[in-house]
Amino acid sequence: MSGENSVTVDVVSDVVCPWCFIGQKRLDRAIAAADDVEVHVRWRPFQLDPTIPPEGMDRRDYMIAKFGSEERVRQIHARIEPLGEAEGIHFAFDAIKVAANTLDAHRVIRWAGAAGEEVQNRLVRRLFQLNFEEGANLGDHAVLTAAAREAGMDASVVETLLPTDADVEAVRTEITTASRMGITGVPCFLLEGKYAVMGAQEADTLADAIRQVAAAKARGELETAAG
């Protein structure tokens, strides 16, 4: 049970969403700024495009088909890159060769949550880095297993479970639930399961929201939220 001066933040995100990577960095800074509040972070699944086949697609072709032209794709990347640099992210968009289906990545993130909050946070950070800074294919089971090992998970268990259907429906159900809640874009930060902060907001905005919800919780003004 969380203490009175604590806030749980459920981050609905996809690990192939550049704004989610930026949001993760800004959340870290917000938590550091709101250092009088104990913040617990849980990562929740969302898929930007669940129609991508399990083996993935050529990312260049995929992005051109999605945005209309290579020039438009470059404009989008050029807008995001300096925002990433400001957060210490070195986006290497040209290094990403595969547009991955992230269902399996979300399964591993779910299993990491069972191993502990810090393990899950380490895994999510590593997956963002692998995709956006190293151009790794997040649909590749070997990549996911190695990331799990780096995060402190039992890699042999992950390697055994990935080829099975373990937790496929559970992850899909969570994604459906997010949609039913009205979440159509990510990242979305859900504070105490009640208050939503949409988009990769600045760290100060997130820190203020964390403090306000913590204060309301301490005053007993929040209804009990489902976990």
Results as ranks from 00 to 15, higher is better:
residue 36 D to A: 15
residue 167 D to Y: 06
residue 59 R to S: 13
residue 87 E to R: 00
residue 109 I to E: 04
residue 65 A to R: 15
residue 22 I to P: 09
residue 81 E to L: 03
residue 40 H to K: 15
residue 39 V to R: 12
residue 48 L to F: 12
residue 205 T to V: 15
residue 143 V to F: 06
residue 216 A to W: 13
residue 126 R to A: 11
residue 100 A to L: 01
residue 58 D to V: 11
residue 30 A to C: 12
residue 184 T to W: 01
residue 98 V to S: 00
residue 139 G to K: 00
residue 39 V to W: 08
residue 15 V to W: 01
residue 163 P to V: 10
residue 215 A to M: 08
residue 172 R to I: 02
residue 114 A to C: 04
residue 3 G to C: 09
residue 183 I to M: 07
residue 54 P to R: 12
residue 158 V to Q: 06
residue 212 Q to I: 08
residue 140 D to V: 00
residue 40 H to N: 14
residue 50 P to K: 10
residue 221 E to H: 10
residue 145 T to M: 07
residue 68 G to H: 03
residue 58 D to S: 10
residue 224 T to F: 08
residue 200 A to V: 07
residue 20 C to W: 03
residue 176 T to I: 13
residue 138 L to D: 01
residue 225 A to S: 15
residue 19 W to A: 03
residue 78 A to E: 12
residue 213 V to N: 09
residue 59 R to V: 09
residue 225 A to Y: 04
residue 178 A to W: 07
residue 102 T to R: 03
residue 36 D to K: 08
residue 107 R to F: 05
residue 38 E to K: 14
residue 90 H to G: 14
residue 1 M to H: 10
residue 124 V to P: 00
residue 74 R to S: 13
residue 115 A to N: 04
residue 77 H to C: 12
residue 117 E to K: 10
residue 82 P to E: 06
residue 173 T to L: 11
residue 142 A to G: 00
residue 149 R to Y: 02
residue 175 I to E: 08
residue 46 F to H: 03
residue 49 D to Y: 10
residue 149 R to Q: 09
residue 223 E to C: 10
residue 94 D to S: 15
residue 198 M to H: 14
residue 16 V to M: 06
residue 45 P to C: 09
residue 38 E to W: 05
residue 80 I to S: 04
residue 111 W to P: 01
residue 2 S to P: 01
residue 173 T to Y: 03
residue 182 G to L: 14
residue 193 G to H: 13
residue 95 A to P: 01
residue 138 L to Y: 01
residue 143 V to C: 09
residue 86 A to W: 11
residue 78 A to L: 02
residue 2 S to W: 01
residue 3 G to N: 13
residue 151 A to S: 03
residue 51 T to N: 06
residue 198 M to F: 13
residue 87 E to S: 07
residue 67 F to E: 09
residue 45 P to Y: 00
residue 20 C to G: 07
residue 164 T to F: 07
residue 120 Q to N: 05
residue 51 T to V: 09
residue 121 N to E: 12
residue 220 G to C: 08
residue 93 F to N: 00
residue 166 A to M: 10
residue 133 E to Y: 04
residue 158 V to I: 15
residue 63 M to T: 04
residue 121 N to W: 04
residue 219 R to Q: 14
residue 31 I to W: 05
residue 225 A to H: 07
residue 178 A to L: 08
residue 219 R to E: 11
residue 92 A to S: 10
residue 156 S to K: 13
residue 170 A to P: 00
residue 155 A to F: 05
residue 8 T to S: 07
residue 30 A to K: 00
residue 59 R to N: 15
residue 89 I to R: 02
